[in-house]
């Protein structure tokens, strides 16, 4: 088995015929590594992580997840998606189900766990994200921050080995960002492999093992957070950092 949890090799992707959204991506992610991906909008950072659980299909090159090469093979896809959890910008909770049902649906029907056990595990995860008292409410009755914590708990119920965060705090009111970042920081300390698309540079500095900067579908620069923020090499990185760290 490869040492890498996720491996991109010469990956290219186009939207339609013209928009080249990923260009020759080469990326290796070690087991347990925590990576923050940043870059201007439209740079392909969301697309990159969505290729890992094949919400998006790449057209050239190979993506390998825990030794499995992604293809249209349904079995491989299913196997990979069991290993990979994803947290979305818009939470994507199921509004017609209670919080608890959101958490237990996949464990019961996909992992075939008995209902009682699934609920027990779900309550543990809800406690972990400090929201257990909301278990019987419906998602839309919760605040954005609470919803995102529920969404994180929902993926954790499937005990993923990899967690993908797609701008998890971008849709939140400022005062709710911290509660979500706190949960993410706690998770990062557990040794789970994390890829996080975010503009929260404080989170990147304190948690990431590596920060990747993308622009126009390419990985422009990657480095440890200290050097990334203090000695950015490329001009594009410098310009980007200057803009988002300006205030």
């Amino acid at each position: 088995m490869s040492d890498y949890m996720i491996e991109f090799a010469k990956v290219n992707k186009w939207y339609g015929n013209h928009f080249h959204v990923l260009r020759d991506i080469d990326l290796q992610v070690r087991r347990g590594e925590r990576i923050v991906i940043c870059g201007p909008s439209g740079s392909g950072k969301s697309t990159l992580i969505r290729c890992i659980n094949r919400l998006e299909a790449h057209q050239q090159g190979t993506v390998t997840v825990d030794g499995l090469e992604l293809s249209d093979d349904v079995k491989v896809l299913h196997e990979v998606r069991r290993k990979v959890g994803m947290v979305f910008q818009q939470f994507n909770l199921f509004p017609h189900l209670t919080v608890l049902e959101n958490l237990t649906l996949a464990p019961i029907h996909v992992n075939k766990l008995p209902k009682a056990e699934a609920e027990e595990r779900a309550m543990l995860q809800l406690q972990r994200v400090q929201i257990a008292e909301q278990a019987h409410k419906y998602p839309l009755q919760l605040s954005g921050g609470q919803q995102q914590r529920v969404a994180i708990a929902r993926t954790l119920c499937l005990t993923p080995q990899i967690l993908l965060f797609d701008e998890p705090t971008s849709a939140l009111d400022p005062e709710m960002i911290k509660e979500v970042l706190d949960v993410m920081t706690e998770l990062a300390e557990q040794g789970i492999t994390m890829l996080c698309v975010t503009h929260e540079m404080g989170f990147a500095k304190s948690v990431a093992d590596r920060v990747i900067f993308m622009d126009q579908g390419q990985i422009v620069e990657e480095n440890n957070p200290h050097d990334f923020f203090n000695r950015p090499r490329s001009e594009r990185t410098q310009a980007f950092l200057a803009k988002i760290l300006a205030h």
Partner: peptide
């Protein structure tokens, strides 16, 4: 997003 969430949960 509902489809994506369901699919990413392995359904």
């Amino acid at each position: 997003g509902q489809y994506e969430a369901a699919v990413s949960l392995g359904m």
